[in-house]
Write a protein that binds this DNA or RNA. Structure first.
Lengths: 155, 155
DNA sequence: TTATGTGCAAATTTTTTGCAGATGG
DNA sequence: CCATCTGCAAAAAATTTGCACATAA
């Protein structure tokens, strides 16, 4: 039984089989995971579980500050442990590779936003998307990069 | 007729009433807008337009590098002019207020990511979400901020 | 025992698609 | 004219909800 089960119980929530299974999955994976994937995994060991339970559990865990969710450019929301929040991810839009990012890289920006704008940025909410080194070579500069629209011609 | 109409025609696209209306809206608004809202506005002057046309036009414009879309924490995708890309937005998750952000604030991060990770970050893809000064006072520290889970008690 | 949690099925919301007809150039 | 666009209607995908029943504590 993982750490989070205890945490939830302490906070007055009931521990159901469904919750335990979902918690186990979330505690064990390193990166991002969709509701669909969590459901798929729980379903293999506990087929009578329902997607809505997964959604409700995710919502509960987010409310309790244990996980957060993130929207990438395409696809459904992805979830990850909140404790990983201050350890950002870089995600390549092209090949999907995920890289961990040292905290000190984003800290200056956070501080700047706070000092200059009084804004408490939630930089952890989104992974930083872009192109990894390899994909830059392969696909060239992207449309969002300066001085290019990434197009090769008319339709 | 706005600038974009000419651009599209030059690139070999046809100029339809629907497209003109959508372009006018996108060229005139300063911040982010949803497909739903674009549709609603077009619909007032041209009721027979269909949402799918709005979606298709947005896709076209994104492909042509004129607009980009963004996912905020909640709700549907929001669209904005691509030229505004290098002028970032701060968006308050709580009250929805949008603030413009000077480029030089994000530049150091971009450079760092490029130098340390060879990663061409698309920082323009997402608005930076968080809490504005006023909402920090009103709602207190958020769950994603360090040393707090933003909760007041058990269920 | 009983408030809390779950499955189910249906509703919502957001976005996509196939197709036949309309239309810009 | 005819390739490109659009409206329509339906499908798909993602998420939410109401309710009766199940179950953790």
């Amino acid at each position: 039984m993982g750490q989070w089960s205890a945490t939830l119980r302490e906070r007055g929530y009931r521990l159901t089989v469904q919750r335990e299974l979902i918690l186990d999955i979330l505690e064990s994976i390193p990166g991002h995971i969709s509701v669909e994937e969590v459901y798929r995994r729980v379903h293999t060991t506990y087929p009578q579980v329902n997607v809505s339970t997964v959604y409700r559990t995710m919502e509960l865990l987010e409310h309790e500050g244990l996980v957060t969710h993130t929207h990438f450019h395409v696809g459904s929301a992805k979830w990850h442990r909140a404790e990983e929040a201050h350890h950002q991810h870089l995600v390549c839009e092209s090949c999907g590779v995920e890289m961990d990012l040292a905290v000190d890289v984003v800290e200056p920006l956070e501080r700047e936003l706070r000092e200059r704008y009084g804004f408490a940025a939630n930089l952890t909410h989104f992974a930083i998307v872009g192109l990894c080194r390899d994909c830059q070579k392969r696909v060239g500069p992207a449309a969002w990069q300066p001085h290019s629209h990434g197009m090769t011609g008319s339709p």
